[in-house]
Structure formats: structure tokens, C-alpha cells
Design a binder for these strands. Structure first.
Lengths: 204, 204
DNA sequence: ACGTTCACTGACCGTTCGGTCAGTGTGGGA
DNA sequence: TCCCACACTGACCGAACGGTCAGTGAACGT
């Protein structure tokens, strides 16, 4: 945070080499997803990293700071994808919505651990509550896009638009429950399948 | 548990009146869903109930026992709905699948707090791991039903059946994130909307 | 009026939590 | 070779955790 102001140091490294913030964060997010944030102690994380608990605090100020960085990563990605879809001009509202869905899937796959963590947040602490509110804004904007596509006549109007939005993005978000970076499906293929099923349905 | 063996006592009640196990369980599940299981202390639950922490242990043997009862309630409900759908004869595999989806939505709405808790379990303790395995069996059976409907020619075959199953029940399960017992939508209407969107798609 | 039943209290247990701090030793730059 | 930046250790802190237990007092049957 404050250290960034001084800029990137010209010398590559000094003193004894070791872990960096980023590695600690990535491992922490993985553990949080496996055991839950509250179910993961800093001792657990230390064991995972192979050194003592106090060493963690050499890299990171607090447990909640790790959570905050992870949630910001996910929220920034989703907000960016949403903004890109909304900014498109010269296309129908329905096409913008499809791009928003596609963009959401891409971010979800690209930042899978962080987004997974975000979708499990319950608003227990101040950090979680703020993340929840940012997420609500994103969801509201997506619901607006659905509404526009319905008003345009592209989507079915026998269901409330809010319901459509919830089912659609409920399906998208459920990807975090089983998608793994195996290479079984890449983000593109996944986005295609989700949009196909959502817009055209399961029936042959 | 062991007290049930003696059967229902003939006298309605003795001594000082107070809470019963069921009330404690209901309140516990609500709290677990609001704050997470690990994020909820027995002290929190005591405060919610309006008496001391030690009083809880007069009704309930342990924190994990509360979780176990909740998860069993959800799993029993889902397993029952699944079995009912599978047992139907004289109908197509596709119709059995639709009934399974409908039944899942009904159970989800009927036992909303318990099912919500189940869908958030991460396998941290022995109780959670066993619940996770029971859930996996149910998911496998549902995937088989999807496969049968695809083989029958009723569902699209340009996507892997396993993928269809995951997206379909990902959408169903996402209901726990926003459905509330307001009376805004009853279980029937909800089941109709979900099946409509899933099978026929969003496009008009 | 009395005695029994029983929901409930308050002090307490050992353990684990997130976090602190005064060292320790390693390795690159000069 | 010396120096010092720096990653890291181990003992420790107060608080909170799940759970225990010897009481206490209220309400019923008799």
C-alpha cells in the first residue's frame, strides 16, 4: 500500500531470499476455499506455507487483509467485465447481456479462487459486508441488463425479469462449485455452453 | 437419541417449562446460515435464544450435533424426492427428470434453512465429510437421470450430459441464495419457473 | 404445604485463536 | 571480509472457543 508510493526499487532483491506477498495470498485463498475463511487459522496457513505463523505477519498485516485483497480481485474483475459489456454500442440489449454473461464466465474461470471466495462471503465482518455491497451493485446492474433485453422483446416476458436474472446468474455462479483448472474445458468453451443452455434451453 | 427409546411420556410435562430441542435447532440453523457454522459460537447462539451458553447443553449434546441434524434433514428430504422421481414408471426418462427437478425445488423451499446449510458445507469435520458424500451420491443419481433423458433423445446432445446436469442443478441450488419464505413465490410457482427456464431457455 | 422434576445459571476448564516482539541467522553488496 | 538488509523463529499475549459441573429456583403432582 504505502510502500508502492516509493516505486519499484532498482535493485532486484536484498538480504535473505524467501516468499513474497503474492505467494502467501494465493495459498491463503486456496486454503480459505478448502476450509472456509473462519475455518482456517493462521496456524493452518503457516503449516501450508512451511514456516511459522509469525513469519506470515512479516509479509501480510492481518488475516482480514488477505481476504480483502482476494475479494477486491474478484470484484474488480467482475466489475470490469460488466462495464465492458455495458459500454458496447451499436448492438442490441440482448447481445450486451450475452456478452456480460460471457465476460462473467471468463472472469470466473480466470480468477476462480478469488471469485469462489467472493460467492461464499456472508457479511460477517466489515470487509465482508463491503464486498457484499459491491457485489449487490454488480448484480443490480446485471438485472438491469436483463430487464432491457426483455423490454426489447428478445427474452421471454412470461417471467419477472428479476427472476430471469437470478436464475441466469445463479447458473453462471454455480460454475465455481465444480470448474477446476484441469484444461478439461477452457473458458471459451465453458462460456459457450453456459450461454447455449441458458438462452436456448436443455430441450432438443 | 437414547431418550426416544422410552417412547413418548404419558404425562405432558414436568417441572419448570422452557425451550425444547427443536426450537434450539431451528434457531441454530438460522444463525449458522447468517454467520456460517464456523463463524457462529455457542455464545452467539445462547444470546440469540436469550439464555446462557451452558443451558444449550441441557438440550443438545454438542455444536456438531446441531449441524448433523440439520444436514440429515436436508439430505433425507432430497433423497426422498429423488427416490420418488426414480420410482415412477410408465413415463419417459425426461418426465422423470422434470419431476426430480420439481421435487428438488419443493424440498429446497420446504426445508430452506437446512438445504442452504447443506449447500455450504465444505467437509471440514467428520460430520461435514459424511454429508458431502451423501450429497455426492444424490448428485450422481441426478446425473444418471439426465443421461437417460439425453439417451432417450429428449435433451440436447451437443453438450456432455454431466455438464447439463451440473448447470441444471447449479441453477436449482442457486435458489437458496435469494428465495425467502415471504409468500412472494410459492414452491409450485418457483418449480414451474425453474423448469421452464431450464428446459425451454430464456429466449422468447 | 411439600417434594420432586427439570430448565437454567455462573464459574471454570483446557485449547486455540489472531496477533506481537525481541531476537537469530542467512546471503548479497561493497 | 565485513556489514547490514531481511526472512524468519519461538515464546508469549489477552480473548474467545467448545464444553463441564455443582448448584439454584420455578412449577407441577400429590
Amino acid at each position: 500500500m504505502t510502500a508502492d508510493i516509493s516505486g519499484v526499487p532498482p535493485s532486484p532483491r536484498r538480504g535473505r531470499p524467501g516468499y513474497d506477498q503474492e505467494t502467501v495470498l494465493r495459498r491463503a485463498i486456496d486454503l480459505f476455499n478448502r476450509q472456509g475463511y473462519d475455518g482456517t487459522s493462521m496456524g493452518d496457513l503457516a503449516k501450508e506455507l512451511g514456516f511459522t505463523k509469525s513469519a506470515i505477519y512479516h509479509h501480510v498485516p492481518s488475516k482480514s487483509h488477505l481476504l480483502e485483497q482476494a475479494l477486491d480481485e474478484a470484484l474488480d474483475g467482475l466489475a470490469h467485465a460488466l462495464a465492458a459489456a455495458r459500454a458496447e454500442s451499436g448492438v442490441t440489449a440482448n447481445e450486451r447481456l450475452r456478452h456480460a454473461v460471457r465476460g462473467s464466465v471468463m472472469v470466473l474461470v480466470d480468477h476462480l479462487p478469488a471469485v469462489t471466495l467472493l460467492l461464499r462471503v456472508r457479511g460477517n465482518s466489515e470487509v465482508e459486508s463491503q464486498a457484499l455491497e459491491r457485489r449487490r451493485h454488480i448484480d443490480d446492474a446485471l438485472a438491469e441488463m436483463v430487464e432491457a433485453a426483455v423490454a426489447e422483446g428478445a427474452l421471454r416476458n412470461d417471467l419477472p425479469p428479476a427472476m430471469i436474472s437470478r436464475l441466469l446468474f445463479g447458473m453462471v455462479n454455480s460454475l465455481v462449485e465444480w470448474v477446476r483448472p484441469d484444461g478439461r474445458y477452457d473458458a471459451e468453451a465453458l462460456a459457450d455452453m453456459v450461454t447455449t443452455v441458458a438462452f436456448d434451453g436443455l430441450t432438443r
